[in-house]
Design a protein around this nucleic acid. Structure first.
Lengths: 339, 339
DNA sequence: CCTGGCACTCGAACAGGGCGAGTGCCAAAT
DNA sequence: ATTTGGCACTCGCCCTGTTCGAGTGCCAGG
């Protein structure tokens, strides 16, 4: 167990290193922080911290920098979540209040987060998993060709073109449309399959039954497929702030960020509730080994429908970043609830 | 007017510099290309080319590198468009053939272009300007709340929620839906305003007239607003290939790429037909002063409905890039025509 | 007009040296 | 047992000087 003072030393090291981006030595530490002890003592503490793996020296006789393990301890036990300043809060409101539709909300959120944290922001579109159906529309494009439009309560619209096995009359179409809607509107996606199971049987013509089956199959397919979520990313220009050695670092990060799959997995790994911080090598993806990911769920009600977060260098201002991420997530949740 | 041989020297310089990324000297030139003259002669030619502003030396007594003006001449008079190799063509087909919807087509195209050119790819969504209306759908969400869904022949779907001044009955709704569709389906966006002008008058109830006006206003607004086109970008990881000095270069480029407005303007400036190459300072946006943009229109029929292109360093393989861009544009056009 | 020769320039790469921040250790003080 | 001041030592950084070579411009001769 580390003594109180040693933790204090670690905190000081993290703070200074985050601020200056340079290895911090014992003397500088005692000057910038009132630890009440001499540099020699700090040196002893540092030796212990290093032995325990919380800090390291880039090369002999340089200052120390925190390791991933050090940041982990810092985040878990030493750092709180820094609340945003009033102007920052106001900025969030100003920025998000003008949003007109879901795309706009997500777009604004991503830009806001990037600006606030000066890092790369990632925002997942609200998931369809928890969503309910607001409306299902069927349009006839050609005698044997239909378009299915699905509208969710989060404002998302998905469409599919369906080639029917046989022509489908306008009256049958209206009939199906009405029945379908009366059954599924307001229901959760997960419940839909059971609710529509027996629909084909209620049609008399066998040709119609075939068409109805096709339509339903497409609907269910849409529900499932679209659960592979989409996301938006922004603030990649902030990658240039990564550090002096970034030419090597930045490449794999950019590559990782282009793979939606990677990002989705990244957010997927995060806890369902509360904020998740993954530091350096804690990230499964190799390209992100020198980055930290701060993510949190957000949603209109109590439940989280999606996640958002930022990707930055392990050397980041954790309290500030966590504060910004949490504040934005909360406000986006409110916005979604209102609309 | 520059002699034939001087042009040949310029071509050699551009080719070598693009290949090696290093200033090219007279001796190296004569070794790598069979110009049939001695280094001394080449030096004289270089002196002339430099005086005319086609090449420059980074510092005294280093080799020469092409200037923007030099690249311009190269592109205009010295370089053809290099056709793709058969495997490359096959790759295009393989890559694009599996696309299921518009988003998918655009997404695949952007990745394909990025991979093929090893640069940053930008693909604009097919424009609504030239599009025609495939269907307009009106749904009642609440007594005085409608949802308008617009479906275009390019497969795009736009939706809007409308708050009506007064409740609107189901029969009126069906009526409006039918009349609206009979008038606008198959028509171009630009023609829609005139076609629906007199619709409100044909409704008897004054409350209904107000609602219809609101709906039409929203429809027209959607048509106009959505002409501000969307686009997709990819391959930003290729920015790391920009050159050794890229830390300074890359930042403004990333920033420019994040501004959709900038990109749209960029593509907008390109010629309507044929390929456009903008080199270095020819680009209006300052952040892109050290990049070149190769763009071309694409579309399902003879007409271009949108543009796509790549952004890369001025020192790029112009013939190869132009070949790839053109080939991809053509094939995407085909895909769109088929669907 | 081209070519070979020649003197010159200037950046890149390397080597050496002083500087200073930082360390580890030890003996004395608390 | 912990803290502290002192001290010798290490080692990367930075500045300087030097060498090396690619590349240039110019000129006289073909």
């Amino acid at each position: 167990m580390l003594s109180e003072r040693r933790l204090e030393v670690l905190r000081a090291i993290v703070q200074d290193y985050v601020g200056t981006e340079e290895p911090v030595g014992s003397k500088a530490l005692t000057e910038r922080h009132k630890l009440g002890v001499s540099p020699a003592t700090v040196r002893n503490d540092m030796a212990v911290l290093e032995e325990e793996g919380y800090i390291a020296q880039p090369h002999t006789s340089a200052g120390r920098i925190p390791t991933d393990k050090g940041y982990r301890l810092f985040v878990d036990r030493l750092a709180g979540v820094k609340p945003l300043s009033t102007p920052e809060r106001r900025a969030i409101h100003n920025f998000l209040d003008g949003a007109v539709d879901l795309d706009d909300v997500v777009g604004r959120t991503v830009r806001l987060l990037a600006q606030l944290t000066r890092q790369v922001a990632v925002v997942q579109y609200p998931s369809l998993t928890r969503s309910t159906v607001r409306h299902v529309e069927l349009l006839s494009l050609a005698p044997a060709r239909l378009m299915l439009v699905l509208i969710t309560d989060t404002g998302r619209v998905e469409q599919r073109v369906i080639d029917c096995p046989a022509p489908f009359g306008e009256t049958s179409l209206a009939d199906l449309r009405a029945r379908l809607n009366s059954r599924v509107v307001g229901r959760r996606f997960a419940d839909v399959p059971q609710l529509v199971q027996d629909l084909p049987e209620s049609f008399e013509e066998s040709e119609d039954r075939a068409t109805v089956s096709t339509v339903l199959a497409t609907l269910l397919e849409t529900l499932v497929e679209e659960q592979e979520e989409r996301l938006m990313i922004g603030g990649t220009a902030n990658l240039t702030r990564f550090g002096h050695d970034f030419p090597l670092t930045i490449r794999p990060v950019l590559e990782a960020l282009e793979e939606q799959v990677v990002l989705l997995k990244l957010l997927g790994e995060a806890k369902e509730s509360g904020m998740t911080v993954r530091i350096g090598h804690e990230n499964a993806h190799e390209g992100l080994n020198s980055t930290s990911v701060v993510s949190v769920g957000y949603g209109s009600g109590g439940e989280a429908v999606a996640k958002l977060g930022v990707v930055g260098p392990t050397r980041m201002d954790y309290p500030g970043t966590m504060g910004a991420v949490r504040a934005v997530a909360r406000y986006v949740g409110q916005i979604l609830a209102e609309s």
